[in-house]
């Protein structure tokens, strides 16, 4: 496998909340390889979102460290549990935001954003307001926004959690197509076993509070993966191991 781009060692975080403090993550260690699709699986409240926020630098760690090899300030693209679009910006303007922040000139930003709109299949909706989008469309805008500035690391926090089953499965196919075309390193949080097996190279399972890595599973299902893999015995075996780890 290719080189390690992110090293997480004995990571822990305590939220100073009630009298004792809430230990959300404890002694979490793992590596992320370049161009890998890593899924983090765990029950609600196990600290998955917290883990992504730590990696994105939105929270300071209480213990341990997060170190990026080579890149001191990796570019991060993030998709949150909710689409999290700016309601005062049109679809195109929302997608342009990361380029504006990095200082790309308007003409280029617009052109790139148009390409992204096409890539996520929203051609014709460039000038729509977020309020006029369906949940699935909004998440695709969020995905386009996370990809547009060519990030070194893509952090996805249950991006399809709020979608219906049909749309979600369509989004899996689209995401894995995008991932293969763009060759990104992805860390995706989910609590769906199917989702993780459909998309990931490797799955980490976190325990409930405090979150620790309980299982690390390599998903050796060949790509491209389609719907049919779900009915193979190998898929069933992997799914059972994940299920047992989650408990």
């Amino acid at each position: 496998m290719s080189s390690v781009i992110l090293r997480i060692q004995q990571l822990g975080i305590v939220f100073k909340d009630s009298n004792s403090g809430l230990r959300a993550l404890e002694d979490v260690s793992f590596n992320v390889h370049s161009r890998e699709f890593l899924c983090v699986l765990g029950p609600s409240g196990s600290g998955k979102t917290t883990l992504l926020r730590l990696i994105a630098g939105l929270l300071p760690a209480s213990t341990g460290q997060i170190s990026f090899s080579e890149l001191k300030q990796p570019r991060i693209g993030m998709v949150f549990q909710q689409a999290n679009l700016m309601p005062w910006r049109t679809v195109l303007e929302n997608i342009m935001l990361p380029l504006e922040v990095t200082g790309v000139d308007e003409v280029h930003a617009r052109k790139n954003a148009r390409d992204m709109v096409d890539l996520v299949g929203l051609t014709g909706f460039e000038d729509s307001w977020p309020r006029d989008l369906s949940g699935g469309m909004a998440q695709r805008v969020a995905l386009a926004r996370a990809l547009i500035h060519d990030p070194d690391l893509l952090l996805l926090d249950e991006p399809f959690g709020s979608l219906d089953a049909l749309t979600r499965e369509r989004m899996w196919t689209e995401l894995s197509r995008l991932w293969q075309a763009q060759q990104k390193t992805v860390i995706m949080v989910t609590h769906s076993i199917n989702e993780s097996l459909f998309l990931a190279d490797r799955v980490l399972v976190l325990t409930p509070r405090p979150g620790k890595v309980k299982l690390e599973l390599t998903v050796d299902i060949p790509r491209p993966r389609n719907d049919d893999i779900r009915y193979t015995p190998h898929f069933g075996k992997l799914a059972r191991r994940l299920k047992e780890a989650i408990g």
Partner: peptide
């Protein structure tokens, strides 16, 4: 929204 602050911070 805090989430939008998070977005802006994640973009540095």
């Amino acid at each position: 929204p805090v989430a939008l602050h998070d977005l802006m911070h994640s973009l540095r």
